[in-house]
């Protein structure tokens, strides 16, 4: 069992619905974007276009963040998820630097979206689930997977650009789509073996 994702860059329209859905699901405060869409301008006028790269944690099979963690807070599950145990994390940010995908975010402060003076009921509730002084990252919405749900970014995507499932199961949608379309991974040369594949990159 190894959870993984395929993201079709031809389908992605760069709308950032995934970014917001992730925030809503995980209760992250301003500045913490566990999922984001990088936007690029490619080419020169008139042969120019926009390019989008949605990205979050790659849940690498060989995660560079895991080996540098000084406290054992970062761990890898049997199903491939790379997670942080907030009870063990000391917040040193070594993993943040070690991750080549900028997928880790130190939670040094918990701010409120409408400014310091007002805490919305949603923030009041969701911020309790965060531990200040730890590192935050995409969990593939591990808390939803048990209920048979997909990660929030997958379900919300209006372009259906994301496909999620078990990479070890050749019959899963994600395995098939990667097999059929030949997905590529980011920074393959680093040997991290990401579980997130990009199609039509």
């Amino acid at each position: 069992m190894r959870y993984g994702m395929a993201i079709d860059l031809k389908k992605c329209v760069g709308c950032n619905a995934c970014t917001v859905a992730c925030r809503m699901e995980n209760g992250t405060p301003p500045g913490i974007l566990l999922c984001q869409v990088e936007k690029y301008e490619v080419g020169t006028y008139p042969a120019a276009r926009m390019d989008f790269l949605p990205r979050a944690c790659m849940h690498c099979a060989e995660p560079p963040c895991l080996e540098v963690c000084p406290t054992g807070a970062t761990y890898q599950r049997e199903d491939g998820l790379v997670l942080v145990d907030p009870r063990k994390c000391m917040g040193c940010r070594y993993c943040v630097l070690a991750c080549p995908y900028e997928a880790r975010h130190p939670l040094r402060r918990i701010e409120n979206y409408y400014g310091p003076g007002t805490v919305t009921p949603w923030e009041e509730k969701k911020h309790k689930t965060l531990t200040k002084g730890t590192v935050q990252k995409c969990t593939f919405c591990a808390h939803r997977l048990g209920d048979g749900r997909q990660p929030a970014c997958v379900e919300v995507c209006p372009a259906n650009a994301r496909c999620f499932g078990d990479l070890d199961d050749p019959e899963s949608d994600v395995s098939r789509v990667v097999a059929r379309q030949g997905g590529s991974v980011l920074k393959a040369e680093l040997g991290t073996c990401p579980s997130v594949y990009y199609l039509n990159s």
């Binding site: 895991l66 080996e67 000084p70 406290t71 994390c89 000391m90 730890t134």
Partner: peptide, 24 residues
């Protein structure tokens, strides 16, 4: 700088990290 509050003490309670982490 590295650790929030007392979290930093965790550095000394996870000797297994000596195998991989240069901070430990």
């Amino acid at each position: 700088d590295l650790g929030e509050g007392g979290h930093v003490l965790r550095l000394w309670f996870h000797p297994a990290a000596l195998r991989t982490s240069w901070i430990t």
